[in-house]
């Protein structure tokens, strides 16, 4: 996959910032998407383009278990999140939705907003086409790809 980077240098971007609780009275992805990252970056929805890749510091998605966080950023056109590390529940939620997440330590030091990124999820290679730097990461386990291929966890367990 290819996409433009949208960088948040910070760590511990929590799910209250990704989608504030005041919007949790809906689970409609399009409606949630209007408020993605609102309390952290009021212009995020305006500035993020379709296919953009969020690049962030450690512990992305900490806090509440709300899967609305995955839906909000996916709804806003984000195709993948690359972070030093992820909080556990957000990571699970992403996998269960077949939404790509990549753990790549120190990545925010080598990517700027607007850089063109190319990611091979299976091989575990991230290329910053804008500065020519390559990074290797541990690919997700095979079962996560199976979930994604099925279209999500529920589709993969449906009898």
């Amino acid at each position: 996959m290819k996409g433009k980077a949208y960088v948040f240098k910070r760590g511990h971007i929590n799910t209250d910032e990704i989608i504030p609780a005041r919007y949790l009275s809906t689970d409609d992805e399009k409606e949630l998407a209007l408020h993605a990252m609102e309390d952290l970056d009021a212009d995020f929805v305006k500035n993020a383009g379709p296919g953009d890749i969020i690049v962030a510091g450690p512990d992305f998605g900490c806090g509440s278990s709300r899967e609305h966080a995955v839906w909000a950023i996916r709804g806003a056109g984000i195709s993948c999140v690359v972070a030093d590390t992820f909080a556990r529940i957000f990571y699970r939620n992403a996998i269960n939705n077949g939404f790509p997440v990549v753990e790549c330590e120190g990545i925010t030091n080598h990517v700027a907003t607007g850089d063109e990124l190319e990611i091979d999820l299976r091989q575990g290679i991230l290329k910053n086409l804008s500065n020519g730097k390559d990074f290797h990461f541990l690919p997700l386990p095979d079962f996560a790809f199976k979930i994604a291929e099925a279209g999500g966890l529920l589709q993969s367990i449906k009898k």
Binding site: I89, N93, N96, I157
Partner: peptide, 14 residues
């Protein structure tokens, strides 16, 4: 442990 809505759906089902 806490889980998201898809996990929850999976447990409710299976």
């Amino acid at each position: 442990t806490g889980i998201g809505s898809t996990d929850l759906a999976a447990v409710i089902y299976s």
